[in-house]
Amino acid sequence: MILSMPAWTGDHYISLAEILLCLGKSLADLQWYVKITEIAPEPGAEQLEALSPTTALSIFELLHLVTPGIQIIDGEITATDESGKQQLLLRAVDSSSWDVETDLEHILSTLEDSYPELTHIE
């Protein structure tokens, strides 16, 4: 299933860090891959830009890199399980929305509860 939500609520940017913290410990066993196309020039952004899309990160390593001030304009963050199967795809779309692709029901319900402006995409 694919969902989309605005990246901005009023003056508040919903960062990748906020989304990951919202989803919580259910993501702890996944491996994370980051492919940044464009990022706002903030302190720490260069570390994300320098990551190879093939570098596997733990959720803790990823959270360390994506402080709440980091604004991803365009990019993809993928989570895979131990067998390499994609479990979650977060796509930053032109700094205006986050698209979320997953079949994991607990992730979908957590996001729907936390972000009422979430919409379903066919």
Rank of each mutant, 00 (worst) to 15 (best):
L3R: 13
S4D: 13
M5S: 06
A7R: 14
T9H: 13
D11V: 04
H12W: 14
H12S: 09
H12I: 13
I14Q: 11
S15T: 06
S15I: 02
S15P: 08
L16G: 06
L16R: 01
E18S: 08
L20H: 04
C22V: 15
G24L: 02
G24D: 08
S26R: 12
S26E: 09
S26V: 04
L27D: 05
A28G: 00
L30D: 04
L30T: 00
W32Q: 02
Y33R: 07
V34S: 03
T37H: 14
E38Y: 10
A40D: 10
A40L: 14
A40K: 15
P41H: 13
E46A: 14
Q47S: 15
L48G: 07
E49I: 09
E49S: 10
A50K: 04
T55V: 12
A56G: 15
L57H: 05
S58I: 06
S58E: 07
I59P: 00
E61N: 10
L62I: 05
L63D: 05
H64I: 00
T67W: 09
T67N: 10
G69P: 01
I73R: 06
E76W: 05
E76Q: 09
I77N: 02
T78K: 10
A79G: 00
A79Q: 01
A79R: 00
S83M: 01
S83G: 02
G84M: 02
G84P: 01
Q86S: 03
Q87Y: 00
L89D: 08
L90S: 05
L90N: 05
L90P: 05
L90C: 08
L90M: 10
R91F: 02
A92K: 04
V93D: 11
S95F: 08
S96I: 13
S97L: 08
S97A: 15
W98A: 04
D99T: 06
D99W: 08
T102Q: 00
T102C: 02
D103V: 07
E105W: 03
I107P: 00
I107D: 00
S109Q: 11
E112I: 12
E112A: 14
S114F: 09
Y115K: 10
Y115P: 06
E117G: 13
E117K: 07
L118V: 15
L118H: 12
I121L: 15
E122S: 13
E122Y: 06
